[in-house]
Design a binder for these strands. Sequence first.
DNA 1: CACTGGAAAATGCCGC
DNA 2: GCGGCATTTTCCAGTG
Lengths: 91, 91, 91, 91
Amino acid sequence: MSNNQLKAIVERIEALEDDKAIIAEGIKDIYTEAKSNGFDPKILKQIVALRKKDAAKVAEEKVLLATYMDALGMLADTPLGQAAIERVSRS
Amino acid sequence: MSNNQLKAIVERIEALEDDKAIIAEGIKDIYTEAKSNGFDPKILKQIVALRKKDAAKVAEEKVLLATYMDALGMLADTPLGQAAIERVSRS
Amino acid sequence: MSNNQLKAIVERIEALEDDKAIIAEGIKDIYTEAKSNGFDPKILKQIVALRKKDAAKVAEEKVLLATYMDALGMLADTPLGQAAIERVSRS
Amino acid sequence: MSNNQLKAIVERIEALEDDKAIIAEGIKDIYTEAKSNGFDPKILKQIVALRKKDAAKVAEEKVLLATYMDALGMLADTPLGQAAIERVSRS
DNA sequence: CACTGGAAAATGCCGC
DNA sequence: GCGGCATTTTCCAGTG
């Protein structure tokens, strides 16, 4: 009967979501531990995000950002401009 | 700074994030399977969300009650305060 | 690409964000002032949040009801379904 | 009496929050409009964020990120990365 | 001055 | 493929 089936579905989902939450907790713990060892969690997150991101897409976004910034006269040879380009790879 | 330490941190995070992604995939699969059995995924999601919300609500009910007790100290016996009291008794 | 167009877009966004920041400042000021008059900002915030939540709840009550009606189509007449019906009448 | 005072406070806050929400809406509209004119909203957001961000902080974060990446061997083989590092050390 | 909680922004998923 | 929505993630002010 559909009743038991529904119950089973909901419970399976909830079990997996619990697992997911536990893992997320674990990730958080690692960041906390890393922080207590002197690593900046924010930067660590940027590293992880960068490694995950597709390289081609990173390059493409860099070009686009550079184009926009150039249009605004922001790019030139300024450290700020360079930082902006780098920033794309982090986003 | 220890390069190896940094490497270990990043890799541990990435491993856990992989696990998390796999579980998320599993959840998605359940919804898909449920759909093929005639259960509307959208409604299922709402049911799951509702149950989670309710669980959280029960857990924090005592906190909420305490807050209201405090608030009533500010409110004196005003209509707003009365409404608050009623709300607590309903939740 | 039109440099002027881009410049205009960015400037319009920044102008609005300034406005938004000013308003946020004003809100903060009210909390500060209230605090100096003996109102606990934390509780005030909770009251405001609660009222907003309630407003949203009223607005979506019909949606929620519809969801439950749909869910009952999946559920047939099961205990879970019955509980759902009761929940709707309580909320 | 404190009742009216509380009511006034809450209502002033809510009024300002409404204003804030309206402005936020306006910002979103601009992004939408810009997108329909061929501007990538994501990049636009990066531009706006960059302009807002304190320049010194940008530089500082950039150095830290470069350091971490270097430790992971991620940076060495990218000319852009090299240029970025050199640029920072000059600035 | 680090921590927690809540607001804001960003991402990803779902439907058309 | 795009827009809207929900979830997740990020940020920031308040607190001890």
